[in-house]
C-alpha cells in the first residue's frame, strides 16, 4: 500500500514520485491538484474560502484559494517541480443545500471562479475539473502518475471516477 497523506480543511501537502495525497469531503470547498509529469512532483490544496484580502487576510493562509495556491506552488518548486509545465485539476465548489440562498454563503461558485483565475495568473493549465452541483467529493492524487481518483455520492451511492 502506498503511503497516504491526508490533507485537512485549509491545508495542503506536496510529494514526489510515490504515495497518495488525499482530501475528504469537499463540499463548497475546492480541492486543487498540481502535478509536474516530468519531475513527478505534485501537490494538493484544500481551500475553504476564495480570497484572503476579502476576509482581511485573517488566520491560516492555506484556507484561502489565492494564498493557499501560492504556498502550494512554492512547495512544488522547492521539490524541483515546475509550475509552468505542470497541470492542474480542480474539484469541489458544490452547493449542498437549496435553502441556503444568501450571496455570502454561495461560497462554492466563488471558490471555483477564483481558483480558475489564479491558475491562469500563474500560467498553469487546467486539464480536468469536476465542480459545482449539489454533491460532495473526496479526491486522491497519485504521485506516481498524476491521476486523480474522485469519489462522489450520487443518489445515496458512492461512485468513482478517474481524472
Amino acid at each position: 500500500m502506498p503511503t497516504e497523506i491526508k490533507v485537512g480543511i485549509g491545508d495542503y501537502a506536496v510529494g514526489k514520485k510515490e504515495g497518495i495525497i488525499s482530501t475528504y469531503g469537499l463540499g463548497s470547498c475546492v480541492g486543487i491538484t498540481i502535478y509536474d509529469r516530468l519531475t513527478k512532483v505534485g501537490g494538493l490544496l484544500h481551500a475553504l474560502l476564495p480570497e484572503a484580502s476579502y476576509y482581511g487576510n485573517k488566520g491560516n493562509p492555506a484556507k484561502y484559494v489565492d494564498t493557499g495556491l501560492q504556498l502550494l506552488i512554492r512547495d512544488i518548486q522547492k521539490l524541483g517541480g515546475n509550475p509552468r509545465r505542470a497541470e492542474a485539476k480542480l474539484f469541489g465548489g458544490a452547493h449542498m443545500f437549496t435553502n441556503v440562498t444568501s450571496e455570502k454563503l454561495m461560497i462554492g461558485k466563488r471558490n471555483v471562479e477564483v481558483a480558475k483565475r489564479e491558475l491562469k495568473k500563474y500560467g498553469i493549465r487546467l486539464v480536468a475539473e469536476d465542480t459545482g452541483g449539489k454533491g460532495g467529493r473526496t479526491i486522491y492524487l497519485d504521485l506516481s502518475t498524476g491521476k486523480v481518483r474522485m469519489r462522489k455520492v450520487s443518489g445515496g451511492k458512492v461512485i468513482e471516477k478517474i481524472y
Binding site: Y24, G25, M96, V100, G136
Partner: peptide, 22 residues
C-alpha cells in the same frame, strides 16, 4: 433541506462561514 453525502462535505459551507472569522 436534506442531503445525503460525505459528512465533511455537508458541514463545509458552515465551516466557511465560521472560517471567515477564525
Amino acid at each position: 433541506d436534506i442531503a445525503i453525502d460525505f459528512t465533511p462535505a455537508i458541514l463545509d459551507f458552515a465551516l466557511a462561514d465560521v472560517g471567515q472569522h477564525c
